Computed example of a mutant assay.
Amino acid sequence: MTEQYTPPKKWTWDKENGGQWASLNRPIAGATHDKDLPRGKHPFQLYSLATPNGQKVTILLEELLEQGFDAEYDAWLIKIGDGDQFGSGFVGANPNSKIPALMDYSGDTPVRVFESGAILLHLAEKFGAFMSAEKRPEMLSWLMWQMGSAPYLGGGFGHFYAYAPYPMEYPIDRFAMEVKRQLDVLDKHLENNRFMVGEDYTIADIAIWPWYGRTVFGESYDAGEFLDVGIYKNVIRWAEDIAARPAVKRGKMVNKTSGDPAEQLHERHDASDFETRTQDKIG
Rank of each mutant, 00 (worst) to 15 (best):
E3V: 14
T12I: 14
T12Y: 11
K15W: 01
N17P: 15
P27N: 06
A29K: 15
A31V: 04
T32C: 13
G40D: 11
G40T: 09
Y47L: 09
Y47V: 02
S48A: 08
S48I: 04
L49E: 00
P52F: 02
N53M: 01
L65S: 15
D74Q: 13
D82K: 13
S88F: 08
S88P: 09
F90Q: 02
G92W: 03
N94S: 05
N96T: 03
S97K: 03
I99C: 07
A101H: 05
L102K: 00
M103S: 07
D104L: 08
D108G: 12
T109M: 04
P110G: 08
F114E: 07
S116W: 05
A118H: 02
L120G: 11
E125S: 09
K126D: 01
R136E: 09
E138K: 05
M139R: 00
L143P: 04
M144R: 07
Q146E: 12
L153Y: 03
H159N: 10
Y163M: 11
M168N: 10
M168Q: 14
A176W: 07
V179F: 01
K180I: 05
Q182C: 06
L183C: 11
L186T: 00
D187G: 07
F195N: 02
T202W: 02
A204P: 14
A204C: 15
D205T: 01
F226Y: 15
I231T: 15
Y232E: 03
R237T: 08
R237D: 06
A243G: 03
A244L: 12
R245A: 09
R250H: 05
N255H: 07
N255C: 14
A262I: 13
Q264L: 10
H266S: 14
H269Q: 03
T276S: 13
R277P: 05
Q279H: 08
D280V: 14
